[in-house]
Design a protein around this nucleic acid. Structure first.
Length: 271
DNA sequence: AACCACTCCAACCGCACACAC
DNA sequence: TGTGTGTGCGGTTGGAGTGGT
């Protein structure tokens, strides 16, 4: 015989908490500790089930809870941890002081997941999705990026995409390479790997899926991609800062961020 | 001003696990 | 070992808020 659900008792209040209820709960816990959550509502004079009280306390009323917008660093931590831990929200929350698993879960479901999907990443695996249509946003962002390199029509540039003969990615150099327009006004040439399989260099870091923009010359490639295009990177804030100082074809790095990211309130601001 | 679509997040639900007996 | 209980966790929902038309 199974245990009846904790909150199915008749007459117990559900829904939003009133300030009076909050006050009762906080006052009781500060004085006695929560003890048995099942007994707490009666002892505290609340017409709620214990589960509801626990949730209210752990997600909202606990004094050490940090409210407000997530910082970029916190987002990066979440992305990094999620790539390793998956949907283990409580485990992720344990690395973010003052943040609750519920809050992190909400951020993920309403924001970070969509962002990864928009960029052509599978939010479950943090790897680029392999089907063409899933990668289309990524390609469009890339086309937009080309446009900022001084070529003009982004869509025309998209048709310059071609598949590399190489079968898979093996290193940073195998990532999509964008050869920016040279000083001699040669047309852009972009090489895309035939496979979007993202290599994991080790358990903690990845080459990511950043775009690299380089001159036709032998100068080394430099990062021109949005930080979040490489969710497994361990320190995305540094990438962002580095990018903000770079330029390609006369554009500042800020202009390389796809529009849907620039519109995003969570994106860092460029001076 | 009214309506609609969409986003965000607090709260709920059900399952799983640990533990006591 | 089986059962009941308490708690934690992850998925989902519903309503308030917001922006667009």
């Amino acid at each position: 015989m199974g245990r009846p659900p904790a909150c199915d008792e008749k007459g117990l209040k559900k829904g939003p908490w009133t300030p009076e209820e909050d006050q009762k709960l906080v006052h009781y816990i500060q004085k006695h500790g929560h003890g048995s959550w099942r007994d707490l509502p009666m002892l505290a004079g609340l017409n709620r089930c214990g589960k509801s009280c626990r949730l209210r306390w752990t997600n909202y009323l606990k004094p050490d809870i940090k409210r407000g917008k997530f910082s970029l660093e916190e987002e990066q931590t979440i992305l990094n941890l999620h790539s390793v831990l998956g949907n283990k929200w409580s485990a992720i929350a344990s690395h973010l002081p003052g943040r609750t698993d519920n809050e992190i879960k909400n951020l993920w479901n309403t924001h970070l997941k969509k962002k990864l999907i928009q960029m052509g990443f599978d939010p479950a695996t943090h790897r680029p999705r392999t089907d063409f249509f899933a990668a289309l946003p990524h390609l469009l962002a890339l086309a937009n990026l080309i446009g900022h390199c001084g070529t003009g029509d982004s869509m025309n540039n998209l048709f310059n995409l071609r598949s590399s003969p190489s079968s898979s990615l093996h290193s940073m150099n195998d990532l999509p390479v964008l050869n920016s327009q040279s000083a001699s006004n040669q047309p852009l040439e972009m090489q895309m790997p035939s496979s979007y399989e993202q290599p994991l260099i080790n358990n903690e870091t990845s080459s990511g899926f950043g775009f690299f923009c380089r001159e036709e010359s032998s100068s080394p490639p430099f990062m021109a991609a949005p930080a979040l295009s490489s969710p497994l990177m361990t320190d995305l804030s540094n990438v962002g800062e580095e990018s903000s100082t770079l330029s390609c074809g006369g554009s500042t790095a800020a202009s390389f961020w796809p529009d849907f990211l620039l519109d995003d309130p969570y994106m860092p601001e460029f001076a």
